[in-house]
Amino acid sequence: MNPSKPLMQMMACAAMLLAVVAPGPCIAQNQSITTMIYDPGPLKPVDSVLKVKVGDPAPPFSLPSLTGEIISLAQYRGTRNVVISFVPAAWTPVCSDQWPGYNIAGDIFKQHDAILLGITVDNLPTLYAWTRQMGGLWFPVLSDFWPHGGAAQRFGVLRTDGTAERALFIIDKAGIIRNIMVSDINRRPDLKDIVDALQAIQ
């Protein structure tokens, strides 16, 4: 495996972030982001094979979160629907605006009795810095860093370069996968698709 590939991918994502959401010249406090930009071009849209399907029990996982808690999928069994948002990596462009978008959609998840869990393969210090520059997030952010991409691997969304797919899994209160959306890594999924999937399991 080419060791520079994940770095190239992250830098490509960072370039896309700059083009779409990075601050203009009037926003001084975020200028440092612009120093991380590199663009290797479009990435392979999907680079993994799902290991689960709709109707399967969701693979269990317990992962460390930014609050210091270990979060287990099982703890929501019987009480909350769960939306898992895997994103490829911290400091990448589409990922870096996908979760801030969900930051103003908390009411949608609440209305559907759902919790959102954000997962990347990054370690906690990286996730801490990344989400801090977003201004903080209302939902738990989990690190699937070690064993590297273990949870992503069980769902079948770990790419060959060690990053995760841009994937959403909707899991009902019984722990059953009710919807799977693996997006083109270069594009952000429509918020409406999540809403429609949550409405379908009510």
């Binding site: 959401v21 975020n30 996908q98 978008g101 103003i104 977003m134």
Partner: peptide
């Protein structure tokens, strides 16, 4: 703007 852009939100 973009709904997903934190600067636009702010």
């Amino acid at each position: 703007f973009s709904m997903y852009c934190p600067h636009c939100q702010r």
